[in-house]
């Protein structure tokens, strides 16, 4: 698998002070694969996600996305800021709290990456940004400021902003956890569409039913280790580990996805 995998994580370790958050994590994501990371809060799943685009610097192990590989730990030199920036430009990330730029319109938010990072001409960036906004169903909100949008709309803009960098992989950090329940569906619908287009994705989520539908592999983490890993449906429907069973018992595992009420 490692020959063809898009993301490869080996022996990853991370501590915050004396708190060991990630203990020897290994992870492979195939090209076009969708991996869901689930687990209780404090399990390290968000930290693992943030190690993939190096928003969090690991203490040891290695991270590879595409052809770029970084080694961490004893004797390994930390990558400089320019190398890091170039690397992150190839991975898109969507945050729990959207983190849209409030001083820019929706369109400017989506154009920001292409213009500032990729040095794209304004006109080209605008064309690209408008196309991304159409894709997430928010073309008519282009000139509005984020403050005027609903949570679901904000998150869709955030997805468009990440997609405008035309990344190889997309990372979702609890993208629907801050949303009102009735707004979850519209965001999940966009993520599902990306999955069907073959985008490589790692999704940290509490939406178990969604993970079952969209992810092909599922990883259950607890206390900084991978407790169970396998095909999403198999892990959710017939978990092997007691810890996984205990965690999943808090959720409705099957059933319809939350309705994607609107596309606008």
């Amino acid at each position: 698998m490692s020959e063809t995998s898009k993301i490869e994580i080996r022996s990853l370790r991370k501590s915050f002070g004396s708190n060991e958050v990630l203990k020897n994590i290994n992870l492979d994501v195939a090209k076009g694969g969708v991996v869901a990371l689930i687990g209780p809060s404090g399990s390290g799943k968000s930290t693992l996600l943030r190690c993939i685009n190096l928003l969090v610097t690991p203490d040891g192990g290695s991270v590879r996305v595409g052809d770029t590989r970084f080694q961490f730990g004893e004797g390994a030199k930390l990558p400089d800021v320019r190398t890091l920036a170039r690397f992150r430009a190839t991975t898109g990330m969507v945050f729990q709290h959207f983190n849209l730029f409030p001083h820019m319109t929706t369109l400017q938010n989506v154009m920001e990456g292409p213009v500032t990072v990729r040095r794209m001409a304004k006109a080209d960036a605008e064309k690209l940004a408008r196309a991304q906004l159409i894709k997430v169903g928010l073309a008519e909100k282009a000139d509005q400021y984020p403050a005027t949008l609903s949570g679901g709309q904000k998150q869709r803009v955030a997805i468009a902003r990440a997609l405008a960098m035309e990344p190889d992989v997309m990372l979702f950090d609890e993208a629907t956890s801050a949303l009102d329940p009735e707004l979850v569906g519209e965001v999940l619908a966009v993520i599902q569409q990306l999955a069907s287009e073959g985008m490589t994705m790692v999704i940290v989520t509490h939406e178990i039913a969604f993970a079952r539908e969209v992810a092909d592999r599922l990883i259950f983490m607890r206390d900084g280790i991978v407790v169970e890993e396998g095909p999403a449906r198999q892990v959710i429907d017939t978990p092997r580990e007691a810890a996984t069973r205990a965690f999943l018992s808090h959720f409705h595992r099957t059933g319809a996805l939350p309705p994607a009420t609107t596309a606008s």
């Binding site: 890091l84 920036a85 992150r88 983190n99 990456g113 990072v117 990440a162």
Partner: peptide
């Protein structure tokens, strides 16, 4: 963080 994630 959002800026960094975009590659800034």
């Amino acid at each position: 963080e959002a800026g960094a994630a975009l590659g800034m």
